[in-house]
């Protein structure tokens, strides 16, 4: 009897999976640290998030097939058709609705990370670039940072509800796929031909974005 796991098809590369789960952890850490006043921890989790999000943007341009924006950003008409159940195609990576969810989530998280750079807590802590702007502007950005957090919570809820829907109603285990990187062959298009970008390129891109974030950080150090 053959092992059923061997039949599964690799759709998610390692960098995308590590990115996804690291983001989950870092959002939780950022939430916890902000809520409990651990602002140094919040700073480092935010900077790491920023580096990873920038990496993900580059990976969306240069990464493996299913990680690329061109693979999962579909025209609105196709998205609407998919949501109405008229679009029955199989997708190796993100489906049309999920693709936009990913893009919006990256955008919102980026906005959150960037506003965090200019924020302050009104006491002894300021974001690395808060001194680049006036106190008034920094305070306004801090308010925006709080508002974007609420938007993120809504998106997380929406994301979890969607993943739960696929798991419990459509019987597609998206979580498992994002862990193992593999999907059942019946859930991917026939004749699938995915290309996977080499891991060292991911490491180079990550080094680049980490360097950019470090440079930004040191701009704010007097």
């Amino acid at each position: 009897m053959s092992d059923p796991r061997k039949e599964h098809v690799l759709v998610w590369d390692i960098p995308t999976r590590i990115f996804h789960w690291t983001i989950v952890v870092l959002v939780a850490v950022s939430w916890f640290s902000a809520d409990n006043g651990y602002l140094r921890m919040h700073l480092w989790s935010g900077l790491t998030l920023l580096a990873l999000l920038l990496f993900r943007v580059l990976w969306g341009l240069l990464g493996s097939t299913t990680s690329r924006f061109t693979d999962f950003l579909h025209p609105p008409r196709k998205v609407m058709a998919y949501l109405r159940g008229h679009e029955k195609s199989l997708y190796a990576g993100h489906n049309p609705a999920g693709g936009w969810m990913v893009a919006v989530m990256i955008g919102v998280l980026l906005a959150q990370a960037v506003t965090g750079l200019f924020s302050n807590d009104g006491l002894h802590f300021t974001g690395p670039l808060a001194l680049w702007v006036s106190d008034d502007v920094s305070t306004r950005i801090t308010g925006l940072h709080g508002t974007i957090f609420n938007i993120i919570v809504v998106f997380i809820w929406l994301h979890v509800v969607a993943v739960g829907f696929y798991l419990l109603v459509k019987n597609h285990n998206l979580v498992g796929a994002m862990v193992t990187g593999k999907k059942h062959p019946h859930l991917v298009p026939a004749g699938l031909n995915l290309s996977f970008t080499r891991l060292y390129i991911a490491l180079l891109l990550l080094a680049l974005t980490a360097g950019i974030v470090a440079w930004v950080f040191f701009q704010g150090v007097p």
Binding site: F165, V169, N171, H184, H186
Partner: peptide
Amino acid sequence: MSDFGPGRLSAAAYFGCVALLTA
């Protein structure tokens, strides 16, 4: 576990649960 085919819940039941859990 099967990775495709009918799910364990209908869409109505699922969203009912979601509404309940959200509330």
